[in-house]
């Protein structure tokens, strides 16, 4: 075999190795998702596993919301750069609506096989003057990276009832 062909074969094997690696990552990523999502105990957000503690009825400067989130990473890869974005929308005096809180918090990584409980603390609300508080709804978005940071995911919880 000519030397040129030998070099070509080496390169081809290298490319094959890379392609196979990517395919395995994709398959294991899918399997991990099945492992994590098939058991509801692996991801516990209120109200199933934990309870939200909040105070949104007293004086506005005393308002706070605490949401504990538990994640058990039973997948094959680390869950990286977990970030939670939290937006609170308040309806008051009949139909007036205003965003009273918007913020995000980064919870870092959860290694494969480990679990973590995070607590999102929302304070510093901007509350308008009102006479009747109708409802407070939360829009929660969880951002993170999986499968060696090759897959990004976003979990959007829309209009989650905080109050009443």
């Amino acid at each position: 075999m000519r030397a040129a062909r030998v070099f070509r074969w080496i390169m081809r094997i290298f490319i094959l190795l890379l392609t196979l690696s990517l395919s395995v990552v994709t398959i294991l990523g899918g399997l991990s998702a099945v492992n994590i999502l098939s058991d509801s105990n692996n991801i516990q957000v209120p109200p199933s596993g934990y309870s939200i503690s909040y105070n949104v009825t007293g004086a506005p400067n005393t308002w706070y919301i605490n949401i504990p989130i538990g994640i058990n990473n039973v997948g094959y890869f680390d869950l990286n750069n977990l970030e939670i974005e939290f937006i609170l929308e308040m309806t008051y005096d009949g139909s007036s609506t205003v965003i009273i809180y918007s913020g995000s918090q980064n919870f870092g990584n959860i290694e494969s096989g480990n679990s973590g409980i995070f607590e999102y603390n929302a304070t510093s609300f901007t509350v308008p003057a009102f006479s009747t508080l109708n409802s407070i709804l939360a829009n929660i978005t969880v951002y993170g990276y999986y499968s060696l940071d090759l897959i990004q995911f976003e979990i959007h919880v829309v209009d989650f009832g905080i109050y009443p």
Partner: peptide, 30 residues
């Protein structure tokens, strides 16, 4: 009744494109 989940696989596609570059290099070499 809950929301939605989004999976973004753009980074995975970028790595695949990088592998394709190597394949192009091989074809030019050929």
């Amino acid at each position: 009744g809950f929301g939605f989940v989004v999976l973004l696989v753009q980074d995975l596609v970028l790595v695949y494109m990088g592998v394709y570059f190597l394949t192009i290099a091989i074809k030019i070499y050929d």
